[in-house]
């Protein structure tokens, strides 16, 4: 049974208010015993594999993006059987309401939510502001790891096409629909081939996919890690980036985690029906042979002009 949706003025303005919960709401839900009795499954998903262990929201289980959601061998996500096993082991059933939160303004939480969505999990929500906001508000943390009763999760095959773009999809998308590049301006222009603090996760070529608008992921977030209001998001994505209602949008970054954060904003907060996350992102595109690249601050055009 889906757990009741939070009602508040900020969320009500979003296209899908049911996809977010606030820290106040989650604290009250936990207080009422919703996590303990299995109505609500709270999931922490962090970049730092040990962060959950030093203290987490009471009753929360941990899902690690690297060891739990990524296939160990192929650069891909786990299959339906592995996902069913993972979910069940965390006390998640197919009809469970799942609330995900994490570090770094929910990068990995949004990524985990996106992977849940690849498997068609219906009711999965994000904690607005994530772990940092919960901590900043001095809310309760525990080191106690719950031992949930196994959930009942069927083997569901992933349905990638609606929300995931592969390199071939992006090539076909060029010139037909907008792209949003959520990396830093230095990565976008090609001045850098890696994130400032991530020098080893680079690419052989710098720049961006032709026609992509540069909207660094953090533009969507307030200083406390919560999403900006609908009005502010519209000014950024519809105004500055030039998206129009009904557009088929592809977002990308470096490995697909920051663009999951933007994917969430476009899909659920602004209500774009068709938004795909290109998880291959720059670590694929910037290393691929003979794909078109634009350097500099201009978006560029497609087809790319030859000889200039």
């Amino acid at each position: 049974m889906p757990y009741p949706v939070e009602q508040n003025e900020k969320f009500a303005a979003y296209a899908h208010p049911e996809r977010l919960v606030s820290t106040e709401w989650l604290a009250a839900a936990i207080e009422s015993g919703a996590a303990a009795n299995g109505d609500l499954v709270v999931v922490e998903s962090d970049e730092d594999v040990l962060l959950y262990e030093i203290g987490h929201i009471p009753g929360a289980v941990k899902i690690d993006w690297h060891t739990d959601l990524n296939d160990e061998v192929t650069r891909d996500y786990v299959d339906g059987a592995a996902f069913a096993q993972l979910a069940a082991s965390k006390g998640i059933s197919r009809d469970s309401t799942v609330v995900i939160y994490g570090d770094k303004s929910n990068w990995w939480a949004a990524y985990a939510l996106w992977v849940f969505t690849l498997f068609g999990h219906q009711d999965v929500r994000l904690l607005d502001g994530g772990r940092d906001k919960w901590l900043a508000e001095g809310r309760e943390l525990t080191k106690d790891k719950p031992a949930p009763a196994p959930g009942n999760y069927p083997v569901v095959e992933r349905d990638d096409a609606p929300i995931r773009a592969f390199k071939e999809d992006v090539l076909a998308h060029l010139g037909t629909g907008p792209l949003i590049d959520v990396r830093s301006p230095e990565e976008y222009t090609g001045q850098r081939t890696h994130m400032p603090a991530y020098p080893e996760e680079g690419a052989l070529r710098g720049g961006h996919i032709p026609t992509a608008a540069s909207v660094p992921w953090a533009r969507a977030a307030n200083a406390d890690g919560t999403y900006k209001s609908r009005e502010e998001l519209e000014a950024i994505y519809l105004g500055e980036a030039g998206l129009s209602a009904g557009d088929d949008v592809v977002a990308y970054c470096r490995i697909g985690e920051r663009s999951s954060h933007t994917w969430f904003a476009l899909k659920y907060l602004l209500g774009f029906e068709s938004v795909r996350n290109y998880d291959g992102s720059w670590t694929e595109w910037g290393n691929a042979v003979r794909v078109p690249i634009v350097k500099g601050a201009e978006r560029g055009s497609f087809p790319v002009a030859v000889g200039v």
Binding site: D48, V49, L50, L51, E53, I54, D103, L135
Partner: peptide, 9 residues
Amino acid sequence: PAEAPTTRG
């Protein structure tokens, strides 16, 4: 920082 346990480890 305490919030960086892997790096601290």
